[in-house]
Amino acid sequence: MSYLLTQLANGVSIGLVLGLVAGGFVIVFTSTGVLNFAHGSVVLTGAYLVAALQPDIGFWLAALVATAAAALLGVLVNAVLVRNLAEHNPATAAILMLGVDTVLLTEMTRRIGNRILPLGAPWGADVVSVGGVTVPTARVVAAGVAVVLFAALWFLFTRTGFGVAMRAAAADGDTASMMGIRLSRTGAAGWALAGGLAAVAGIFLTSFPTQGVAPSIGLTAFAAIPAWVLGGFDSLPGAVAGGLIVGVATALTVGYEDDLQVLGRGLGEVVPYAVMILVLLVRPNGLFGRQAANRV
């Protein structure tokens, strides 16, 4: 029983971080309709900046600078590239982001090289034990940060005029701009939020139990895609729920692999995607998505 609890806790703990990553996908998608394939390298860039700056200015200041820099990076990518696309459609924007991803990832690979950069976070490798279940302190902090951030985002999107404007701009740009909404501002705000969120996610993604910043972190962000999709493409609570589902499903599959041997080894890699396909069969818009993905 305590083993089951341990694996559940492991799943929830990684799932929260995946939810933070997935949240970045959601925000960019709802504010500008772009599938941000470069999100993984923005996550990596944020984490790298923290690791590179913290020896000189300390972890907290480095985290602040990295978050601001990642937000700025997002705004720049949107203003300089996305808004100047020759053709505005989702596939083109997605491929544009792949180009951005290639450039960013190459630069990060060159800078990081063969090293694994320590993050210098105050929680280090500490763990919290409750009733025989051990959870890394970093993940407890992540849970707290996630709750605060998502509550703030939820408030922004539903209770403030600007948030409503952002959603309106996303739902119908033409009408929104006729109503006086400045699409450049709502878009910039979305990309800034997503960039900042990416840096925060990057910090927790490279904290214990992961050992620091290496280029492979960019890949891990791909694991957040099933979380995003099964939660619903445009729902922040969906992103968190999706992350948790993916995390728990993976942890349980790994934990009980011996009982699932008929399906072959290495199931942990497949389970998120299998769960995603199953959910989409039942609910084509994901768990929390609006009725947008299908209509006829």
Binding site: F29, R83, D172
Partner: peptide, 9 residues
């Protein structure tokens, strides 16, 4: 634009 929310131009 129904394929996804339109990108503002």
């Amino acid at each position: 634009s129904h394929s996804a929310p339109a990108v503002p131009s």
